[in-house]
Amino acid sequence: MGLFDKKGAGVKPASIPSGPDDPGASPDVAEDEIRIPAALFDGLVCGTLLVLGLWFVVGALRLPTSNAAFDPGTFPMITGSLLILLSAIQIGLTVSSRGARGDVVFQRPVWLGIGMVLIVAFPFAVEAFGYYIVAVIWVPIFGVVAGIRRPLSLVVTTAVVLLLAKGVFEMLLGTPLP
C-alpha cells in the first residue's frame, strides 16, 4: 500500500459534467478517494499540535514576569506544555500500534480541497469586492463543488442565499453587509 493510495482512479475522472442529462451529471458517479494510513495522518496532526504547543510555550517565556505565582505567561505555558506532552504521547502510541486504526479515507478529495480554498478565500474576497458581487459568483461555484448539477438548482440556491442576506440580515436585522 502506497503512502497516498488512490482508489477508483480510471473509473470516472472527477470533472464538472455538462448538464443534468449527462450521465456524469449525477454526483452519484464513482469518484476518486484518497487513503492515508491513519498512523501517518494522526502523526501529522499531532505533530502540528506539538509544534503549536511549542510556539505557545516559547511565546509565554517571552512574556513579562514578576514575583507573583501566576504571571501572564504561566497559564499558556502550562497548557502549551501539556499540549506538547500529550501530542508526543499520542504520536508514540500511534507509532507503536501502527496500522491499528486502518486508513483515513478522503472521498471526493479534489472537490473537498477546492471547497476548503473557496471557504478560506470568501472573507478576503468580500473585503475586497463587497458581499453581493462575491456572493453572486461564489455561491454557484461552491454549489458545483458541493455537487449541485442542475443549473436551475444553482440559480435557486444563489437566490435563496441573496434573499437571506438582503431580507433577513440587511433589512430585518440591520446588519450592514460590506
Partner: peptide, 26 residues
C-alpha cells in the same frame, strides 16, 4: 449539496453579523 451550500453561506453571514467585520468570517 444544496444544504451544504446554504449552510456554508449562512454560517459566513452569521459570523459576520456577530461583529459586522470580515475578520469573524476568517
Amino acid at each position: 449539496p444544496i444544504i451544504a451550500t446554504i449552510v456554508a453561506s449562512v454560517s459566513m453571514l452569521g459570523s459576520y453579523a456577530a461583529a459586522n467585520h470580515t475578520f469573524e468570517m476568517m
